[in-house]
Computed example of a mutant assay.
Amino acid sequence: MQAAEQLFLSNGYEKTTVEDILRKVGLSKGGFYHHFQSKEDVLLGLIDLMMDQVIKEVEPIVTNQGLSAVEKLELFFQKHVEFKKTKVKLLAYFSEQKLSHSLQLSRQSIFWQNYKPHFLTIVNQGINEGSMQVACPEQTVELLLVVFSYIKDRLPQVLDDVEAFGKYVSAVEEMTERTLGLENIHLHLLRFVDQENEEA
């Protein structure tokens, strides 16, 4: 899978063949088809692996007792998108390839189901701390995740456009602040974006 990811990113998904992957790892066709049914199956495996890695990246943030809910929310969102930046081409291939719509929805649904409890834990902490005013936390989290999912799909198109990406970040910050009832608290969901702009 690591070899396939390297080839997808260097040569492009369409131009990479199963034979290319086999040559890179020295594997026989029989060995390949013992684990995967097709090149598409490899791409799906990489997407599944990436989703698992994202969840593992954010879990320590949620369980850190030394952070406030607002601090966790900022780190949570930043870690999510920061990780996705390194995988943006794979995400684009996943969206662009002629995979069945139901298959894509199924993968996304599984990811958000695993993501939701962590996000909800942060919101409930914010409610208990008094920094967040939310009447229906579970439903609110579900709706925010719909927005974050949209941003994920848009990321490959706007990532290289600093101005466009900055506007998306500002919009998400403002919407999240209002949705979670944050008063006199301005979120900085993607601090590294500001840092990159300053360096540029």
Rank of each mutant, 00 (worst) to 15 (best):
M50S: 13
M50E: 12
M51E: 15
M51F: 15
D52F: 03
D52Y: 08
D52A: 11
D52S: 14
D52I: 02
Q53P: 04
Q53M: 15
V54W: 06
V54K: 13
I55A: 06
I55P: 07
I55K: 07
I55V: 12
K56E: 14
K56S: 07
K56C: 00
K56N: 09
E57Y: 09
V58N: 02
E59S: 11
E59F: 05
P60Y: 09
P60A: 14
P60T: 14
I61V: 04
V62M: 06
T63W: 10
T63C: 13
T63V: 15
N64T: 01
Q65P: 08
Q65S: 15
G66D: 01
G66M: 03
L67A: 13
S68E: 09
S68F: 10
S68Y: 06
S68H: 09
A69M: 11
A69C: 14
V70Q: 12
V70A: 03
V70I: 12
E71C: 03
K72H: 05
K72M: 03
K72D: 03
L73W: 02
L73E: 02
L73A: 06
L73M: 12
E74T: 01
E74K: 01
L75S: 08
L75F: 12
F76V: 06
F76L: 08
F76Q: 05
F77T: 00
F77R: 04
F77H: 02
Q78N: 10
Q78A: 02
Q78W: 05
K79P: 00
K79S: 04
K79Q: 09
K79G: 00
K79A: 00
H80Y: 12
H80I: 02
H80D: 06
H80E: 04
V81M: 12
V81P: 01
V81G: 00
E82Q: 14
E82W: 08
F83D: 02
F83W: 08
K84Q: 15
K84F: 08
K84N: 14
K84C: 11
K85R: 15
T86A: 08
T86P: 01
K87E: 00
K87M: 01
K87H: 07
K87D: 05
